[in-house]
Design a protein around this nucleic acid. Structure first.
Length: 300
DNA sequence: ACCCAGGATGTAA
DNA sequence: TTACATCATGGG
């Protein structure tokens, strides 16, 4: 096993690992104490995942945005973590460029150090198909269950880590199998989408080269993927920082804070709110506002 | 019991 | 194009 430390001071704007991994963006990681989404950070606990056959564990003992990251893996995990946690993002510049609206400034200030993630596309796609009408804690539970049931098991020291299933592995599950895991009406969506990817009919990665709105349209060909889920995949996996998923929380924010952005349909409301949230990094602002509202930290 | 959660789909107008 | 019912499940 290899181990190492990434100095927090090398990261512009630092990183808050708890806020980054427990803000409902990524469902790829599990916490060693098994208690995520409880509004209870555990600085001593390890976050673990497997990406491209490489098991990784990371934690932030200091538990603050300026604290160092400690990691363990079977190889040098720095390049991998740099990608997954977007450690090269200039968080200070991004926050400085954020629009002056009070809600947005308040969200950035309240959750200092939260970074966007870059999840593996297939994992992200299935995660957000599962996310329909679900709370973040349960989405994580469903994704973890899929990993335990259909994914390969890796070891890292004493720890066992389940990789998210490959398209082939997941496509082999039947709708009935997935309903057994409490996926509900999402079961056929997950099965059919896994099948589409496994058979080479389409791949979420192929959206990366397209222009934003074309990329969003491309992703909606997957079963169980509408505009909102497509935006989540674009933002949390494919590097489209301008994507703004219009979920229930953001719809509420639009109604209360940006009512003029409501243009009746998804596409036009999306354009207006993306512009209002700053354009290029609108998705970053969205993620801060989402987390701020969802955790009830909003200052009224 | 009722309402809600990072919605999508099929059908009817 | 838009409006609406329907779809599972668990927690408050």
């Amino acid at each position: 096993m290899e181990t190492g430390t990434i100095p927090g001071e090398e990261l512009v704007g630092g990183i808050d690992l708890y806020r980054t991994l427990e803000s409902g963006q990524s469902y790829c990681w599990t916490r060693s104490d098994g208690a995520m989404y409880t509004d209870q950070p555990a600085p001593e606990a390890w976050y673990r995942t497997v990406v491209e056959g490489i098991p990784v564990a990371v934690r932030q003992p200091a538990g603050v945005a300026s604290g160092d990251l400690e990691w363990r893996s079977t190889t040098d995990a720095v390049p991998l973590l740099r990608r997954l946690l977007r450690l090269d993002d200039d968080l200070e510049a991004i926050a400085d460029d954020a629009p002056p609206e009070p809600l947005i400034q308040e969200a950035y200030t309240a959750h200092d150090g939260m970074r966007l993630v870059e999840d593996p596309p297939f994992n992200c796609l299935i995660s957000f198909i599962c996310s329909a009408q679900m709370r973040v804690g349960r989405i994580h539970g469903m994704v973890s269950q899929l990993a335990r049931t259909y994914g390969d098991t890796y070891t890292l020291g004493e720890a066992e880590i389940n990789a998210f299933p490959t398209p082939d592995q997941l496509a082999a599950a039947t709708e009935a199998d997935l309903r057994e895991l409490s996926l509900g009406y999402r079961a056929p969506y997950v099965q059919r989408t896994a099948e589409m990817v496994a058979e080479g009919e389409a791949h979420p990665e192929d959206a990366r080269d397209l222009e934003y709105e074309a990329a969003r349209e491309y992703l909606t060909q997957f079963v169980g993927v509408g505009d909102k889920v497509a935006d989540c995949v674009l933002l949390f996996s494919l590097g489209f920082d301008e994507a703004v998923p219009l979920d229930t929380w953001i719809q509420t924010a639009i109604a209360e804070y940006f009512p003029d952005c409501d243009n009746g349909n998804y596409a036009e409301t999306s354009r207006a709110i993306r512009s209002r949230l700053g354009g290029r990094y609108a998705g970053y602002a969205q993620t801060y506002v989402f987390h701020h509202l969802r955790t009830g930290a909003v200052d009224t």
